Structure formats: C-alpha cells, structure tokens
Simulated assay, not measured.
Amino acid sequence: MTTIKRRTVLFADLRGSTALYESLGNAQATAVVTQTINALAQRVPAMGGQVIKTLGDGLMAVYAVPSMAVASAMQMHDLLESTVAAPHAAPGVARLRLQIAMALGEVVEVNGDCFGDAVNVAARLLDHAGDNETLITGELFDELPFDTRGNYRSLDRVHLRGRAEPVEVHMLPPPSSDSTATLMETRFDLAEPQGLQLLWRDGVYRFTRSDLPVLIGRGSACGLMIDEARVSRTHARIDWMGGSLQVTDLSINGTYVRFAGDDEVLSLRRGSCTLHGSGDIGLGGSPNELGVPVLRFNVMASLDDTLPMRLVPPPGEA
C-alpha cells in the first residue's frame, strides 16, 4: 500500500567506526557498532517516530511531529556522548561521533520504506554535517517553537549534490561545545567579503557567497575534491556566516590555518576560525610540514580580486 504523508525525515550516521574496526577487530567492532545503533534507534519510537531502516553504522527514521524529531536527535547525541565517556568503554569507542541531518516534506511510504524529496534532501545534507552536529532544513526550522530557534546557527543556502536549487540549512552545534569559543580569530573590523579563492596545485577555484557552504575533502560530495591520504572524506567546510567566511574542521587529522605575514599556525580540531586576507590551509597537518596538502586562500574584497600564485614560501624554501 502506498501513502503520502508530511513527515520529518532523519538520517543518523556514526563516524569513527573504521578506526574502531582497526583497533578492535571485525567481530568486536561489529558488536559495538550494532549495539550503539540499536541504542540510538530506541530513541525513535520513544519520541513518536518510526525507524525505517538501519544502515550498518547509521539509521533512517521518520516523525509526524517536527519538534519531536529534533528532541529525538538531541537524545541520540546525549546517548552517544555518555557512551563514549563511560569509564569501561571499549578501546576506540571514544572516537565515535554522530552526524544527524533532517528535512521536512511529503514522504511516499511504500511497503515499509520511504521515498521523496525530503528523504533525498536529508540524505544529501548528511554529507555536510560535522562531528556531533545536527543539520536541519529551513522548512523544518520554521516549524520549531520560537524559543528553541536561538540554539541554531544559519548556514544560509547550501548546494546539495544532485539538486539544482540550494536548500536553506540551520545547524545545531555539538551538545558539549561552546560555539562562540571555537570561532577563533574573528575580525569585526573588516569589510564584508564578496567571495573566496582557493589555489590547489595548478588550479584556482572561486566561490562567491551564493556558492557557500562548500565542502573540502576526498568524497564525491565535496565541492573541492582533494585526493590525498591525509585528507578525510569530508575534511572541512567553508561557510558564509554573519558577514564573514568561516572554515570548520570536520576531519580526523585536523585542519590548520596560517595567515600571510603571521608565523602562528591555528590548529582547528573540531573548531572554526574566520578567514581574512590570504594565507594557507593545511589539510591533515600544519602548512609548515613537508608532504601536507596545502590550499592557498584569498578572501575577496571584490569579485575582481585575483589570487597570487604564491602567498607564503612552502617549507624548505627561502
């Protein structure tokens, strides 16, 4: 039987399970991941939702009430946080992280499975979520109680893979993070930038405000693909927030920023910083280290700005 209903679609995905298999072995790691996913799934019916399917190290669920879907997501994050902090947790469990993405819209239910635009949007939006982040669409955000909306940060409009029109997205930061503390090197005295240029090898890539956020990493969903061993599948995200450009680390090995004319290197471990002027972004290591993939960046004050081919001498050069 086929039915069409308005539902909130939730996708949840565990990150760090690959390292878990390396540290625990297949049998024990499978048991830990399965146990964790089953525990997360139990939070779904408790909040009026329905688990559609589990996906190895993830799950898909639908909810009739948008606010209950968000509450369920928060419970999932709390559960994983308590799991990784448990004193007798298995080795490697502490590296597990949870990504959640949700979209609201019409869903076609067929033989216990769900299809439709909201399903596709939620699945694609999951690619943009950082560790322990929850991303929701603007349509879902508008359905939430007014007094809870202040917990979210707008990511403006996001271009999703396979979708022509961008989607308005809001982010609920990790439960234990202080989002204001992770926004390092904020510069309030600068004119509002008009775009960003990134230099990778011999290519120069320009991103205007309408192109952001953009993902950087090895994955096919990334707007700038960097196929290097140190680079994570989804390594970093550059957002347009509050009139500034911000880079956020989403990786295992970290993202590192060095501004032109400054010897200091900022280490972003699940943190963010505001980009200004020009400089280097090291993916998986400091730009000062040999062998580290380095992006050169230039924040464009106008769309006529060009990126110098060399901003900072690479390591080993005078």
Score class of each variant (00 low, 15 high):
185 E>H: 09
304 D>H: 12
202 D>W: 06
216 I>M: 09
209 R>T: 03
82 S>C: 03
221 A>T: 07
48 G>F: 02
289 E>I: 12
257 V>Q: 15
269 R>L: 14
185 E>M: 09
276 H>F: 11
290 L>F: 13
22 E>S: 09
226 I>Q: 15
58 G>H: 09
26 N>P: 15
280 D>R: 14
31 A>S: 14
287 P>E: 15
177 S>R: 10
21 Y>Q: 01
283 L>W: 09
250 L>F: 01
28 Q>N: 08
120 N>R: 01
281 I>S: 06
58 G>Q: 06
77 H>V: 05
43 R>C: 11
105 G>A: 06
173 P>L: 08
116 G>A: 13
88 H>K: 14
189 D>Q: 07
252 I>M: 00
186 T>P: 00
106 E>Y: 03
155 L>D: 13
12 A>L: 06
304 D>C: 10
54 T>G: 08
297 F>E: 06
124 R>P: 14
150 G>I: 00
271 G>L: 05
44 V>Q: 11
310 R>N: 04
2 T>A: 02
186 T>W: 04
289 E>F: 12
230 R>H: 11
279 G>S: 13
46 A>P: 07
208 T>M: 00
247 V>W: 02
231 V>S: 13
87 P>R: 02
150 G>K: 06
214 V>I: 13
276 H>A: 13
243 G>A: 13
212 L>D: 00
278 S>C: 11
302 S>N: 08
80 L>T: 13
274 T>D: 13
144 L>A: 12
231 V>T: 08
192 E>M: 13
305 D>S: 03
191 A>K: 10
290 L>M: 07
28 Q>G: 03
